[in-house]
Structure formats: C-alpha cells, structure tokens
Amino acid sequence: MAEAGQSIAALAAYLGVKAGKVTLDGRDKIPVVKGKTGTRRGLVSIAKHLVRAAEKNSLLGKTIEDQSAVDQWLEYRVSQLDSCQGDKELTVVLKELNTYLADKVYIVNHIMSLADILLYYGLHTHFVGMPYYDKENYMHVSRWFDNIQHEEGVRQTLPYVHFLRTQIYDRMSH
C-alpha cells in the first residue's frame, strides 16, 4: 500500500511549497492537513491545494476536459491503486495502465500533469522490487515510469528504478 503521506511530502518538495503537518486519520489512514485556510482531507484535495498554492495550475489540466481527466486519474490513484490488497489486485491495475499507456506518453493530453506525478509516487514502491520479467510485461507502464522519473525534480531522493532497453524475454504469446 502506497503511503499518501510520502506522496504529499514529495509533491510539496517538487512544487517548492510547504506541505504542513500531515496526520493520518482513522482506520483508512486518510491524510489530513490543517492549514490556516482550513482543513483538507484526502490525498486528492491536499495535492490539488498544493499545486494551486505553488501557482502551477497547468498541472491540473488546461482545458475543462483535461481537468476532469486529471481528476479522474487522481481518483484512480486513491480508489484503485492505493486500495490494492496484494499482487492480484495490483496486476489488474498494471494491466489496465499498460493498455491505457500503449499509445500515450503522459496520462492526460501529451503533457505531464499532477496525474503523472501522483501515479508515479504511488507506483514507486511497487516498481522498486519488480523483477525485470514483470517490468517487461508492463512495458508501456515501464516506459512511462522511466520517463517520469527523469522529469526534473520529480524523483528527488526516491531510489532510481532501472529498466532494460532491450527485451530479454521471449514472448511468443504476444
């Protein structure tokens, strides 16, 4: 399970703003930040608030269509990825993402958005221990992940995940 608190800290550092104190609330460990302008509950609303505070609104999507697409993917991170219990559920997410990313470089509309950043943070723990066989299996997610980890300032102190450029496994079934 991805730690929402770590994602918030990393995002704040990327944006160059202060995250404030994050507490985890209840059994579901929902992150909460109490700020001067009010209390924010949940990864999505905290993250979006940080982006606005940093005046990097373009990360939330430029058009209304893009904004709602970014929102959907932020929800996806929380409701699908963060809730994964075990490998089987994770496999479903990775498969879904792999198909989705086959013809895309970024999650939404040809440009990096908050959706890319938070999915990258959310997937990082899973990629760190992933065998090459799986990385190759989820080739498009891997390619996307590799690109995002190279975006200036995104990775920070997170371990660099290594990918092979050439396929080593024979996939007759493909």
């Binding site: 080739m139 891997s142 390619r143 996307w144 590799d146 690109n147 190279h150 092979l164 450029r165 396929q167």
Partner: peptide
Amino acid sequence: LQTRTFLVGER
C-alpha cells in the same frame, strides 16, 4: 521507441 519515450535521454 518501444522502451523509450523520446529518442535520447528521456527528454
């Protein structure tokens, strides 16, 4: 480009 986003150096 199967394993790369851009041609050189991920940018």
